[in-house]
């Protein structure tokens, strides 16, 4: 019980009190790093839809910008390859581009991929497993990155580090698959934010645009 209460379900222990705790509360710590310098992230979600439907939504990579944060465009370049364009997570407005290749493709079961060339060195796998008791599908995502620790720490402070991006993206994927939209508060009215309110917007991750889910109605 003690362990369950001190742990986020898909992340590390809740940060301790003190200055570091205040800065990091509401953020995820940078991902763990292997001996060879590889950062890795693993997360999962229970989604109340059949594996086949989830596989199709995930495999349709040109639709990824609808539910993945910061991804602005994905172009299919071959049966197994695609070209990805992504805003960097640090709120600077710069983009990075890379090519990605599907390494293993098992319909309704899972997909594995890796970047082949470009600005991002990443690889990942998603597994769709039927959950017991008619509870839909357990979706597990494992992703690996090679990026400098400094860049990862910087993104932790200013926006989303790779780990949080993966966790948030799976949350968006779940919401889109189950409800057909992604919950959002961007664009709603509010009074003047004052200085601390503006500063904390980044801390809350509210500077990162919520993906539209593809069905946004003009307001």
């Amino acid at each position: 019980m003690e362990r369950a209460l001190s742990e986020k379900p898909n992340a590390e222990k809740v940060s301790q009190s003190g200055v570091a705790g205040i800065v990091l509360d509401g953020h995820y710590l940078p991902p763990p790093v292997d001996k060879d310098g590889k950062q890795w992230v693993r997360t999962s979600a229970l989604i109340l839809r059949p594996p086949s439907e989830l596989y199709e939504l995930w495999r349709d990579v040109e639709k990824a910008p609808l539910w993945q944060e910061q991804i602005t465009e994905v172009r299919v370049t071959g049966p197994k390859t695609s070209h990805w364009i992504m805003l960097t997570g640090d709120d600077s407005g710069k983009s990075i581009e890379w090519d990605s290749e599907v390494l293993n493709d098992e319909p309704d079961k899972g997909i594995a991929w890796s970047s082949v060339e470009g600005d991002s060195n990443n690889a990942g796998e998603v597994i769709f497993a039927t959950a017991p008791g008619e509870r839909g599908t357990i979706v597990t995502v494992l992703q690996e990155f090679r990026m400098s620790k400094l860049a990862s720490a910087w993104e932790t402070l200013t926006g989303r580090n790779p780990k949080q991006v993966i966790i948030e993206n799976l949350r968006h994927f779940k919401a889109l698959a189950e409800t057909g939209e992604i919950p959002r508060i961007e664009g709603q009215p509010h009074g003047p934010r004052r200085t601390t309110g503006k500063a904390k917007k980044s801390l809350y991750g509210e500077t990162i645009a919520t993906p539209t889910g593809g069905q946004r109605t003009a307001g």
């Binding site: 001190s6 742990e7 940060s15 509360d25 966790i167 919401a175 189950e178 919950p183 509210e206 919520t210």
Partner: peptide
């Protein structure tokens, strides 16, 4: 409900889920 909190990561930090 799993799908209506756009800031779910903040509540996770405080409540665990």
């Amino acid at each position: 409900c799993d799908n209506t909190n756009p800031n779910a990561h903040l509540m996770e930090a405080a409540y665990g889920y």
